[in-house]
């Protein structure tokens, strides 16, 4: 039941079965995170490169620890400037590290589609750790895992995603993932930060999928929600005239206790981090009991362990041992 794929680039092209497999495995890996000895020998001899063209703390660390807990060797290349500016193309960088025997490249890149380009030219498995405004599939998976862990299911839940949908790869991965798993997804934010024709994504969720609704009224999205997911607002967007001021944004679209009172009694609050406290999310909300923001971080490691295990754990191809039920004796 492994993933029959070389790369993980999007949740758009991932089936419900594949997503479910990752979530199921992730709960087993979470148990390992609770042990004194947080290490299993599974990926001994495999090497993983984290190649980050954008600044990142939690995602890069999360992948690195996930690899290390599975006994893989992990190395990091971080550059905040583009490779092209520095003179080396992405292709040359990729071929160089592949020649050193890297089995998996975890890449974050400011340009949408860059991991697809990498996947086409590399033998190594590619995991998209965020590409431009496109997708961040492991974030989507860890959010789904965090929701399912608290709610016991995804189907039928009302999930409100609030903020800068336009520039958010986290939103896109969550819309695909949650929608296909049957949640009712609501998007809310200023009209200038809602991407064109986004509501059409809902038409492709499939027969088991949920619905997608778009509104500019945060209250409408939060009302009776099971989950409220707040997105990070990139403050430099203001300079482009997409909204007039931080103050007005916080007033009209900020998530605070008053607005959260509209949600279901047992709702949970999420944020992919890093937070702008007092802008998109109020501090007293972020630190309240219903916040699972810290759980999201822990679950991120478990989900990434599952992803790395499922991508790199197999690999024997034709010589696969055909024993029944996956058991050895």
């Amino acid at each position: 039941m492994a993933l029959r794929r070389k790369d993980i680039l999007t949740l758009e092209d991932m089936s419900v079965q594949e997503m479910q497999a990752i979530l199921d495995n992730a709960s087993s890996f979470k148990e390992i995170l609770g042990r004194d000895i947080k290490k299993v020998p599974t990926l001994r001899g495999k090497s993983i490169l984290t190649l980050f063209y954008e600044a990142s703390t939690r995602t890069r660390t999360s992948f690195e620890l996930a690899g290390k807990y599975l006994s893989a060797d992990t190395v990091n290349i971080a550059t905040t400037t583009s490779a092209i500016v520095k003179g080396e193309t992405l292709k040359d960088t990729a071929w160089t590290v592949e020649a050193m025997g890297i089995d998996c490249i975890v890449m974050r890149h400011p340009i949408a589609g860059a991991p697809h380009f990498l996947a086409r030219i590399c033998q190594a498995s590619i995991v998209n750790a965020g590409d431009g405004m496109h997708e961040h599939p492991t974030q989507g998976l860890l959010d789904m895992f965090s929701i399912a862990e608290r709610k016991g299911r995804l189907k039928g839940l009302k999930v409100a995603i609030i903020g800068d949908i336009f520039h958010s790869r986290v939103a896109r991965s969550n819309i695909w993932g949650l929608g296909k798993m049957g949640a009712d997804v609501w998007l809310a934010g200023p009209s200038t930060l809602i991407p064109p024709e986004v509501e059409r994504m809902g038409e492709t969720f499939g027969s088991r999928g949920g619905r997608l609704r778009v509104t500019c009224r945060v209250e409408e999205a939060i009302e009776a929600a099971d989950v409220v997911m707040v997105l990070r607002l990139q403050l430099e967007r203001q300079k482009k005239g997409l909204f007039p001021s931080i103050r007005e944004y916080a007033r009209l679209f900020g998530v605070d206790r008053r607005r959260l009172a509209l949600a279901k009694d047992d709702f949970i609050l999420m944020h992919p981090g890093p937070m702008n406290r007092g802008v998109e999310i109020a501090s007293n909300a972020a630190d309240a009991d219903y916040s699972v923001i810290i759980d999201q971080v822990t679950n991120g490691v478990a989900v990434r362990m599952a992803v790395l295990y499922l991508l790199l754990g197999g690999g024997g191809g034709e010589e696969a041992v055909a024993d029944k039920g996956g058991e050895v004796r």
């Binding site: 949408a112 589609g113 496109h134 896109r172 991407p195 064109p196 986004v198 059409r200």
Partner: peptide, 13 residues
């Protein structure tokens, strides 16, 4: 083109 597919692909339209 700015439209559904630019939204899906995360490319500027």
């Amino acid at each position: 083109h700015q439209g559904y597919w630019s939204t899906i692909l995360g490319l500027r339209g």
